[in-house]
Amino acid sequence: MKKARIVLFSLVLSLLLSGMSLANKTLAATFNEATSKNDIYEKITRPKIGKERTERLLNYIKSTKKPVKNLSSEDLKKLQQDPSITSFSSQGEILKLPFTLESKNLESKNYSAISSLPIQTAAADNRVRINPTTTYPYNAIAQIDYTDGTYGYSCTGWFVDKNTVVTAAHCVYDTYNNKFYQAWYVYPAENGTQLPYGGMASTTAYVTSSWQLANPPDADSIYYKDVQYDFAVINLSSSINHPNYLTINTNPQVNNNIFSVGYPADKGFMSNGSYYYYMYGSSGNISKIENNTITHTAYVTPGMSGGPIMLTSNWNAVSLNSTSSWGIAFSTVSKNFILTWGAQNN
Rank of each mutant, 00 (worst) to 15 (best):
Q344N: 04
Y111E: 09
N257L: 09
Q80V: 00
K225N: 10
K2S: 05
V300L: 11
S63D: 02
K78Y: 00
I309A: 03
T135I: 14
A140N: 01
K37N: 11
S287M: 08
N272T: 12
G192F: 05
Y224I: 02
S90H: 10
E42S: 02
N256V: 07
F88H: 06
A189G: 03
Q182W: 06
S202V: 05
N292Q: 15
S319H: 09
T147A: 12
S103D: 14
S115Q: 13
L71N: 05
T45G: 00
F180I: 10
N105Q: 06
F31T: 03
E42D: 11
E42V: 03
I44G: 08
A205N: 05
Y176H: 15
D145L: 12
H296W: 07
Q212D: 05
N272W: 08
Y60I: 08
D174E: 15
D82K: 07
S239T: 15
Y223M: 11
D218V: 11
S319Y: 08
K43V: 14
E42W: 01
K96P: 00
E74W: 00
T30H: 08
N105T: 12
S209L: 04
I240Y: 09
T133V: 10
V233A: 15
L236P: 01
P264I: 01
L17R: 06
Q81C: 00
T54Q: 13
G307Q: 10
E102Y: 11
M279C: 14
T203W: 07
Y224F: 14
S283R: 09
G149N: 04
A169V: 10
C155P: 01
G342Y: 06
P83W: 03
D230T: 03
I44C: 11
W326A: 02
E107W: 06
S108K: 11
K104P: 00
S108Y: 00
V300R: 11
E290C: 02
T134I: 15
Q120I: 15
K43E: 06
N346Y: 10
E33D: 05
T323Y: 08
Y185V: 15
Q143M: 14
L13N: 09
E290M: 10
N110Y: 12
A343P: 05
K25Q: 14
S238E: 13
I119H: 04
H296R: 10
Y41K: 01
I85F: 04
I94E: 09
L11W: 07
A23G: 07
G303M: 04
I234R: 02
Y275V: 01
T100Q: 14
L117M: 13
Y187K: 05
N249Q: 05
G268T: 12
T293D: 11
P98C: 11
P302F: 12
L106I: 13
V300N: 15
T193R: 13
A329M: 04
F330Y: 14
S36A: 07
C155D: 03
Y275A: 07
S202G: 08
L16T: 05
P137H: 13
T133W: 02
Y223L: 03
L13E: 05
I309H: 06
T332Q: 14
Y277D: 09
G262P: 13
N251G: 02
